[in-house]
Amino acid sequence: MNIFRLAGDIAHLLAVIILLLKIWKSRSCAGISGRSQLLFAIVYTTRYLDLLTNFVSIYNSVMKVVFIAASYATLYLMYMKFKATYDHNHDTFRIEFLLIPVTALALLVNHEFSVLEILWTFSIYLESVAILPQLFMVSKTGEAESITSHYLFALGSYRALYLLNWIYRYYFEGFFDPIAVVAGVVQTVLYCDFFYLYITKVLKGKKLSLPA
């Protein structure tokens, strides 16, 4: 564990908590993409199946359980409890355009052709693009609530911090996983436009709105 990975995990945890609290406190999931949340639930489920086969540490197991539970809680709030507030007219990104290529890529480019390894690889590739329906929704409506922006910033920071973690681990531990690194770079790049808007607008107290 190094400071970058810990900071990344904290940012990730913070993002998940911000989202749950936002929905719970406002009794509304307006502006949140249910499709992205569905993809994240798939990501955590397929990645953390190794909870049953591979023990790393208490920290690791607890975080995995929290991420899985939080993703299903978010889905429950969006698709059941506060279904009436779900803005599905603006949530129209076709997720099969992500799921099909990501599945194909996971079958073709992986470390080892085994079920768990392919599911892990699939989850890494899927995570890198899972935010696209949410970003698409923000661009379609042209704006996002500040709390949604904070969520997106925390979630984007997590993988950016992981990139620093991988640089650190490469130099100090000789650890290198090209699949995770390439997907992590793609994932972080997708947030760049949002990071720019967040820093230039939201941090100056303005609402995140896109030029018409």
């Binding site: 190794d50 790393v56 995995k64 470390h111 996983d177």
Partner: peptide, 10 residues
């Protein structure tokens, strides 16, 4: 084949 790296990250 090369063994997959250890999965110790989240």
């Amino acid at each position: 084949p090369v063994k997959a790296p250890l999965k110790d990250e989240l």
